[in-house]
Structure formats: structure tokens, C-alpha cells
């Protein structure tokens, strides 16, 4: 496999890139901070199976102009490309987003518009090569309008719908879309937040996502328990959702 991972310097992206490299897949690490990219590149080279290619390419989800160039550079460095993974994204609490419109604009833009723009470039690239897998990290926050994640959840809801449509439209042409919906996972992004029950670890999530990519599953809840939890929450009537705190 020849995979691009946007967001591989941190959290679930880091865990996923390590698993890819360890099992012998070539990886292009995309991220915004060049020093961080170097450190993650070195990490993957040291951990990776012998003979794999590891490339580091600057790409910032806040700068859509660079998306195409970054994907082209990744394709060149890996001598091909068949998988694009996006784990990058911004998170802020509902309170922080309500208080700061500038932050809100950033989160909505990065988590929805720019992620979609990146996916569109990846779609064209992969379809041009005869197909592949596009795996994007959305969130359980987009499954239902909920009090603690109104704004973040709205961006992720849009993203989830986009990914679903993409899968329906292009799977026949060989482009499989995998929408990952992580529940609470203990990473740097959620650091300092109170962990609910069934909180996951990035390594376990990475294992699940890898299986989903290999099998081409269109949707994966991670940890799997969140599939059940969200199944229940999706079924709750509005008058209940209005009263409960989650």
C-alpha cells in the first residue's frame, strides 16, 4: 500500500501511520509544522519494515492552495498512491466556540470546507490512478445534534454526509470511501477533557481503522462500542434529547 496520511504527526494519525509502516506500507506524512514532520518521519523510518518509503511533505489544512501540490509530491515520493487518509482536524469545546467567532470560523472551515476540498483533490488523484481508498476521520459528534457539540458536530455532520455521498457515487469506479467516526479517544486533542466510559486508545482505534481500510468498509465506529451508543442516541426522540445533557 502507498498511503498519504494528513495529520500523521499526532494522535490517531500517528498511531495509524506507525501501523502502516510496521506492516510494510509506504507512507507520506503530511502536516503543517516542518520540525514535527521531520520528527515523525524519523520515527516511521526507524519503526518501519525494511524497504518502505517514508516521505514528509508540508501541507496545512488551513491553506487549500497547497492541497494539489502536496498530493502530487506524495505521489512522486512514494512512486504511486492508492490510499489517502485524513486524520487532521481542529477541535474546541462548545463553550470556547460560542465565545470566539474567529475560532468558530476556523473550526468550521478546517473541519468541513477545507477537508472536503482536500478530499476532492484526493478523489481526482485516486480516480485518475484507477481507484483506491479515501479514509477520513469524521466524528460521532456529527451523528445527532447534541448539547455539548453543537458547532463542532455540525461541521462533522456535513463531512459525514459528504463522505457517504462520495462512497455511493464513486465506489463503482473503484474509489472506496471509509468514514471513521471516533468516539472519545485519549489523544492530545482530547487531553484535559473528562473521559467518558468506553474512551478508546489511539493504537486500538488504528487497528480498527486499518481493518476497515483493508476491507473497504464505508463506515467504522471506533471504539466499536460507540456504534451501539450512537445507535441508541440516534433513536432517541427529540423531547428526550432536549432534556438530557449529552
Amino acid at each position: 500500500m502507498k498511503a498519504v496520511v494528513l495529520g500523521a504527526t499526532r494522535g490517531m494519525g500517528r498511531a495509524l501511520a506507525r501501523k502502516l509502516a510496521e506492516r510494510g506500507d509506504s507512507v507520506a506524512v503530511l502536516g503543517r509544522d516542518s520540525a514535527e514532520l521531520e520528527r515523525s518521519g524519523a520515527d516511521l523510518r526507524a519503526r518501519g519494515a525494511p524497504g518502505i518509503r517514508v516521505a514528509t511533505i508540508a501541507c496545512d489544512l488551513e491553506k487549500p492552495d497547497g492541497f494539489k501540490a502536496a498530493l502530487d509530491a506524495a505521489e512522486d515520493a512514494l512512486l504511486g498512491l492508492d490510499t489517502v487518509i485524513v486524520t487532521a482536524g481542529l477541535f474546541a469545546t462548545q463553550e470556547a466556540l460560542e465565545a470566539d467567532p474567529a475560532l468558530l470560523a476556523r473550526v468550521l472551515t478546517v473541519d468541513f470546507s477545507n477537508t472536503v476540498l482536500f478530499c476532492e483533490e484526493a478523489r481526482k488523484k485516486l480516480l485518475g490512478r484507477g481507484g483506491g481508498t479515501l479514509c477520513v476521520f469524521s466524528s460521532v459528534a456529527g451523528d445527532r445534534g447534541r448539547k455539548p457539540v453543537v458547532l463542532y458536530g455540525a461541521a462533522k455532520a456535513g463531512l459525514s454526509r459528504y463522505l457517504e455521498g462520495l462512497d455511493h457515487r464513486y465506489r463503482g469506479q473503484g474509489l472506496k470511501t471509509v468514514c471513521v467516526k471516533p468516539g472519545f479517544v485519549r489523544t492530545g486533542m482530547t487531553e484535559g477533557l473528562k473521559a467518558p466510559p468506553f474512551a478508546g486508545e489511539p493504537e486500538a482505534v488504528a487497528d480498527q481503522v486499518l481493518t476497515a481500510i483493508d476491507l473497504g468498509l464505508p463506515e467504522v465506529y471506533a471504539p466499536a462500542m460507540w456504534g451501539l451508543v450512537m445507535g441508541v442516541i440516534k433513536g432517541l426522540p427529540r423531547f428526550v434529547m432536549r432534556r438530557v445533557g449529552f
Partner: peptide, 15 residues
């Protein structure tokens, strides 16, 4: 969570 390998030399073993 700060657990990256930053350099490894296969000849000397320096990590």
C-alpha cells in the same frame, strides 16, 4: 505520548 524515535544509526546502534 511523546514517544517518537528521532534517530537511529544501524551501524553504531545509537538511538
Amino acid at each position: 505520548r511523546a514517544d517518537r524515535i528521532l534517530a537511529f544509526d544501524e551501524v553504531t546502534g545509537m538511538l
